[in-house]
Every structure is written in C-alpha cells, then in structure tokens.
Amino acid sequence: MRNIFLLIFIFSFTSCKDDVLPKPKAYLGLTYPKKSYINLNLERPYSFDVLKNTTIIDESNDWLKIKYPNLKASIDITYRPVKNNLKELLTEAEKLVFKHTVKAEQIIPKDFINPQRRVFGSMYEITGNAASQIQFHITDSTKNFIKGSLYFYAKPNYDSILPAVDYVKKDILQLIESLEWKK
C-alpha cells in the first residue's frame, strides 16, 4: 500500500513537465472597407467629400443624414443660414455638446481654421457612454453654419464602439477639410 502511494506521488510530480503559461490576450478583429471618397452631389449651399459606401439621405432645409448601414451609425448634418445670429448658433451647438457631460468621461475639442476656404469650426470627441461620440460645427462666419453629430443606433457602450468611432472620425475630418461653401 505504501508503494502505491509512493508511486502516485512520484507520477504526480513527474507527469506534467510542460510549463504552464497564461493565454495571450485576444483582440477583437474588425475589418472595415478601404476608404474612397466622392464629392457630395446635391444642391446645397455647401459641398464636401463623403465616403463612397455610405447612404446619403436628403432632408429638408439643406439638412442631411449620412448613414453607415454596416455600422448602424449616422452623421446627422444640420444647416442654418447666418443672419446676425452667429453667436446664438455657436452657443446652441456648444450647449448640445456639453449636454453629454453627464455620461461623458472626457470631451476633447479640436479647432479648425482655413482662412482660404473660409472654414472655421470645432470638433468635439466625447469619450464614455454618451449618446453621441463626435459632434462638430463649421461656419464661414458670415452666411453659413453647419452642425454635425455622430450617432450609433445601439445602447452606448464606448469600449465596444470605439473602433467604429475611430473609423467614422476619419470621415468627419475629411468632410471638414474638404468643405467648400457655394456662392
């Protein structure tokens, strides 16, 4: 009997010679289509580049919805003419951004200034489980004002949608950098 216990004891220490290693971290592998842009082909007081594989929904008052069907997201664009009310339009746009402070962990502003094209604006990245992760406004400061918001059609979970936010953010930057006001 003592020999059996000794044999079991020896086997238990000699049977597993491989080192036990922790499993490597797994990363979510998301792939997105390669980016290709076209110029917005609608009668508007403005034009800019949009991603080819988006759906453009023409709305009244020169408003737009740029839909990303595969991401279940959209960029909602509102247009307002400036009629001695630029300060009010800017205040309203910033109020909408800072409404998200309840759920936001951080709001990161980025300003845009292109005097040659008369494009002046700001983009706000909103981190955390807010309803909108990116908001922006652009103006020529005399006649035109655009406000845009990125929305996902899902319950906000910032960690899960972060790769999609980064993907769409590049399109928003392209939109702002390619914006031209029509006379």
Rank of each mutant, 00 (worst) to 15 (best):
L150E: 12
V102P: 00
G29K: 13
T14L: 10
W63P: 04
R118E: 07
L51G: 11
I134V: 14
L64Y: 09
D62T: 13
D58N: 14
I161P: 03
R2K: 15
L7G: 00
E92Q: 04
S160A: 05
L173H: 03
Y79K: 10
D49W: 06
K110F: 15
K182M: 10
A26G: 09
E59I: 09
I134S: 00
D171N: 11
S74D: 14
E88L: 05
P81L: 12
Y27S: 04
E59W: 03
E88Q: 13
D19S: 11
D58K: 11
L175M: 05
I10C: 02
T91Q: 03
T54R: 02
K83H: 13
T139A: 07
T31M: 07
V97N: 01
K143F: 08
N3P: 00
K143N: 15
P45W: 12
V20I: 01
N129M: 10
D76F: 15
P163Q: 05
K72Q: 12
P22G: 11
L173E: 13
N41W: 11
L175A: 08
Y68A: 06
F112D: 04
E88P: 01
T127A: 04
E88M: 07
T14H: 12
L6W: 00
K95N: 05
K99T: 11
I77A: 05
Q133A: 13
P33R: 06
K183C: 09
K170D: 11
H137D: 01
F5Q: 00
H100S: 08
I138A: 01
E94K: 15
F9E: 00
I57Q: 07
I107Q: 06
K95T: 09
I134W: 06
G29Y: 08
Y151M: 01
R118D: 12
A164E: 14
L179P: 04
I57V: 15
F145V: 12
I108F: 08
S60P: 02
K182D: 01
I56S: 01
I107A: 08
D62Y: 10
N114Y: 13
T14S: 07
I126T: 04
D58G: 08
T78N: 10
E59V: 06
L96C: 10
P163I: 03
Y32L: 05
K95D: 03
K99V: 05
S141K: 14
A93W: 06
Y153C: 03
S122D: 10
I134N: 00
